[in-house]
Design a protein around this nucleic acid. Sequence first.
DNA 1: CTGTTAGCGCATTCAC
DNA 2: GTGAATGCGCTAACAG
Lengths: 332, 332
Amino acid sequence: MTVTIYDVAREANVSMATVSRVVNGNQNVKPATRKKVLKVIEELGYRPNAVARGLASKKTTTVGVILPDISNSSYSELARGIEDIATMYRYNIILSNSDQNPNKELQLLETMLGKQVDGIVFMSDVISDELRKEMERSPTPIVLAGSLDDTATIASVNIDYYAAAYEAVQKFIDSGHKKIAYISGPLSSEINREHKLKAYQDALKEAGLGYDERLVVECNNTYEEGLAAVQTLESVEPTAYFVSNDEMSIGVIHAVEALGKKIPEDVEVITYENSKLARMARPMLTAVALPLYDIGAVSMRLLTKYMNDEEIEENQVVLPYRLEERQSTKHV
Amino acid sequence: MTVTIYDVAREANVSMATVSRVVNGNQNVKPATRKKVLKVIEELGYRPNAVARGLASKKTTTVGVILPDISNSSYSELARGIEDIATMYRYNIILSNSDQNPNKELQLLETMLGKQVDGIVFMSDVISDELRKEMERSPTPIVLAGSLDDTATIASVNIDYYAAAYEAVQKFIDSGHKKIAYISGPLSSEINREHKLKAYQDALKEAGLGYDERLVVECNNTYEEGLAAVQTLESVEPTAYFVSNDEMSIGVIHAVEALGKKIPEDVEVITYENSKLARMARPMLTAVALPLYDIGAVSMRLLTKYMNDEEIEENQVVLPYRLEERQSTKHV
DNA sequence: CTGTTAGCGCATTCAC
DNA sequence: GTGAATGCGCTAACAG
């Protein structure tokens, strides 16, 4: 039924070792016999069985990708970055959604290792101790994409979230704002809590502005909650909004405009993500540009180095970010 | 180094067959020995090698997914539907982006088959003859998700694109519009050309309205081109826009409003997709709801039936759609 | 209920 | 340059 390497060998009057050599591009084959083998392969429609190959060689040329939710545009952008580089290095991707559920993450990790992937790219807002321990003991290399590990034991690719947030808030301070709101994603996320919020607090403090906790609203990253957050803050009347992601930012500008205020004249907004949405909003959103595609791509590239046992100079990669000025902030 | 089924067998004083049985949940094992084996598995940290298992059993419990671009929200929504059902049936997903490139699609198909996936979910706007031929000769089941195959030889799940488009255009006609524009995605896509455009033409014709080809603008599905399309049509002054997808629709409403016209008072818009964007637009978009998640989920479910050799009543599944009325059309 | 025996399809020594 | 032999780790009859 299925044609194997052995069938090709017999038909071409060579040994399976020779067929294996031509299939794998080994140079130790006389051009004439290579040609003959290739011809038979074509005739028989032989297709190498990657599973058998994987068992024999202990390499599957596939890597596992575990992320919260592929239908979320941030993660799908990241995934594309990963896949593009993977393709470039001839790897395939096994993709799974964790929904940030720790048990599911653990179990997915287990499944991927069982499938003998050559490496894993992992993303999650919070890495539990148990998960980190599993990762450390993992026989196959793992890199964290856009996910922090304080212990720095696991390779990772990120930007300087703190500095980026600080710069955004500082921009508001420089413009003379006194009541700056921070519309945050879940504070269970270390990036939101220890970097963005911290930077927000530090910037205010260093500017001599008090920290008013009423100005911080924790949301679940959705448009609707962005909308609601502004309503919650109506009595406080913030004049500037630092928002955790694009989708909430659109909620914010819609709610602000519904209150009859003009952006950026009355209220300024800076988002933290910079997906296509930032350009599709009206006014277009000034943004801290989080290079998700690049984070994915660099993570995958780093992973290939581990998989090839290459020398790694630094396992904690920090990519640059930039502040993209558009219409939701005043230009000076 | 790696602990195998044989190690477990030796340590538990049983044969590897018995270990295999407990690992696979075979009932023919005395509870006592099952317990003993489980204990050793735990102690040794044994993890079954899925590759070896795949070679021996000829099942990999992984399915291939080939789609145009995971970073596009439509496809990522579809992917999530596929993955959820796959997880439910204990399959993993190998995901690849084709960018609708026929050669890449062919090559990806080949790669997936080489990896011995148990099934494939495929999506593409246009299925070339060569590709269809490859699919027909494929030894492993394939289902097309949201992709048409006129010959109906390959299983597929879709909605009635024509009827949905017809209904949208008819709604405009019922409201008395005479100049209805169709902002289309690439007409190389059969769905855009043979279903949406055709329905548009037919509806106009049957209403006794002439077909003015200046009212049809072909775009590449992006926000920017939606924006540009309206400018192109400025002199024609359409009073209604039937738009191929959400992203272009947002471009359309922005451009229309930039022209000083009010939506829906002066101009009405109906989009064809209904992603989150439709609710994030202002005004919120009335939409033909394309159930992408469901198409993915049902495709995967159908695939499981093929993989289990279950009885298939109908290989061309047609899912229902609905018209979601929001703010970009007048309510009567 | 449990053990023995064969492969699954290929890469990889080691000879020649 | 090429071939023969071995084993990767596991499932699947087949016995018993």
